[in-house]
Nucleic acid binder design. Structure first.
Length: 130
RNA sequence: CGGGCAAGCCGUUCUAUCGCUUCAAUUAAUUUUGAAGAGGAAAGUCCGGGCAACACAGAGCAUCCUGCUUCCUAACGGGAAGGAUCCUGGUUAACAGGAGACGGAAAGUGCCACAGAAAAUAAACUACUGCUGAUUUCUGAUCGGCAGAAAAGGUGAAAACGUGAGGUAAGAGCUCACGGCUUUGAAUGGCGACAUUCAUCGCGGUAAACCCCAGGAGUUGAAAGACCAAAUAAACCCCGGUUACGGAGCUGCUCGUUCCUAAUACUUGUAUUACCGGGAAGGGUAGGUCGUUUGAGCGUAUCAGCAAUGAUACGCCUAGAUAAAUGAUAGAAGCCCCCGAUUUAUCGUGGGAACAGAACCCGGCUUACAGGCUUGCAUUUUUU
RNA sequence: GCAUGCGUAGUUCAAUGGAUAGAAUGUCAGAUUCCGGUUCUGAUGAUGGGGGUUCGAAUCCCUUCGCGUGCA
């Protein structure tokens, strides 16, 4: 389903602390992905944080626009690119950090996010095999 | 008709697919259905309140803010109406338009660079007037002394209120007339600021310099605060306290006022135990609910008022998120711009749509804003 | 959300309301050297923006922009 509810977002402060201190990360412009394999048996396969820095975008409108585009692209593509790769009790905690300096249209954001998710699933597979 | 200025208002709409948040009903189920879902500034946080916690016998000082009058308001540094001042236009009159933090310089202190004789208790200098000394080429000139006086010196942002007359050795608001600003008192008009008239006192600027006068301000802000859940330490160590020139509380300070332990031992002022206060070190939580959206609320009509605004009646319920909902894609309509075509108001292709996102809630102020509408003002051109 | 501080040459700092905003360093040019460095001489360059008070504003006041800091 193309849904994106509250439960799929990462709100726990402890988990976020653990994610940024011990998670692995890579950059695929204009995103920086930080992710970590979790093993607790929550209902959601993937939990995600989307953040846009105030340093690069002063106005709240601009930050909202970027976040809405990322969220929409993630909602439309997560099912086939990410969820089908996950088996068993493996769970992913994920942070999408926007590092671009300008606002891109939706088509560009969607294309980049697709390749990002593909790379993420590759890395996840390597870890699971190890 | 065109552009300009001022004030007020609007701030794209609809359809389809896939989603997000809240509420209501429903379901075995976050299952399904329905309803609602950013602004004029939500912004800056510059003012004022509500609300909450803490504090509070009382007085004074300090600190900060405000500053023509009356009214509006819950309140305001906001608004309305008016007054005086200044600027612009004008027949320099009436009047019209605009502007501003608009109490006091006659309580006191300070400051006023450069230039200039002098920048504030006026007067050193040049020049002026009277008396007088010396020299000499003797109705005069040169060099001085004493006294008077504040008119002349054209520098400056500003020169001791301005003009004229009298007066005098020379002069001076020294006196008088007219005029400007101003203090105090009286009369008249006005709720009042103030205006007019009469008398009287005075005459540099600066209070967004210190200051004086009048009025006001308890402190902290939803990370306030209340409840639930979870966790727990009443452990150990150090310092201080036992009746007073000490300590603590009461707003930063002062006055003033209120409060301030017991037992045991012996060497009778020390120790131990308990108690009170503070510190260090260490451990735990860092989730949820309420506060929180029905309110100084919005719309319409009538009445009162010059107006801001208020009163009455009827109707309406209109976001409530919390690592942050209100979105994405496609199409259509209308608007604007560029290009091309012609029939000069139509068609076609392409592009654009501002400033900006609620975070406890209101009232203002300030700032940002594509494009459009309405009203008023003055102006240009054309037609009659 | 609330409270609070700062803004001066490219950089680091000065300046009591008063003349052309000063010093060090940097940059550029010249001299010195066979060349470079050092040294010497000269030049360059600033009060975040707007408005007001004042004869006069970096300084005083208002407004705005930017950069920080703190909180349970």
């Amino acid at each position: 389903m193309y849904t994106f509810k509250k439960e799929e977002r990462l709100c726990s402060e402890k988990l976020i602390q653990g994610l940024f201190s011990s998670g692995s990360s890579f950059i695929l412009y204009p995103f920086r992905i930080t992710w970590m394999a979790a093993s607790d048996e929550s209902a959601q396969l993937v939990r995600v944080v989307i953040s846009v820095p105030k340093r690069n975008f002063k106005r709240a409108v601009d930050r909202n626009v970027i976040k809405r585009r990322i969220r929409e692209a993630y909602r439309l593509n997560k099912q086939e690119l990410l969820y089908q790769q996950i088996e068993g009790k493996n769970r992913i905690v994920l942070s999408i950090h926007y590092v671009g300096k300008e606002i891109f249209p939706f088509s560009f954001v969607e294309k980049k996010l697709k390749s990002t998710l593909l790379k993420l699933s590759d890395e996840f597979h390597e870890k699971v095999v190890d």
